[in-house]
Amino acid sequence: MAKLHISTTINGEPEEFLCTPDETMLDVLRNQLDLTGAKEGCGSGDCGACSITLDGTLVCSCLMLAAEAEGKKITTIEGMAEGETLHPLQQKFLEEAALQCGICTPGMLIAAKALLDENPDPTETEVRFWLAGNLCRCTGYDKIIRAVLDTAADMRGAA
């Protein structure tokens, strides 16, 4: 299969890569670009561990063809902190122990940030339904939901 040449932007930096037409964005991120923060938990869009944003929209990178990245802006977990400064969600997840094993954490953070970008004052129910596509088997979600709500409150206070 002939490879396609793709020009895109990842975490604010221009990036080029070659991929086959059937290759997923997740495989290119993980196997070519050394961006292994996105995880493959299912490969079928059910667990959300591979969450990234594409032009600001939350997507499962396992369901996206790498070729679709052409001309788009991609953000992964590796681009969430600004230099040494963690995003408030990252910091709150640590402070409130909103992770145990940590495998769902990158996807959960990307999804939570996409929510707060769209809705800075979500209700608990809105957070729960927004994150319903991000599976966590360790925490029972309690501390994750609280961390997202508390971050939202902090960010509103700071704004």
Partner: peptide, 16 residues
């Protein structure tokens, strides 16, 4: 798979 083997998702649960 996770679609048909139905583990609890965030919207299934209350605070614990």
């Amino acid at each position: 798979g996770f679609l048909d083997y139905r583990m609890p998702v965030a919207s299934d649960l209350p605070m614990l």
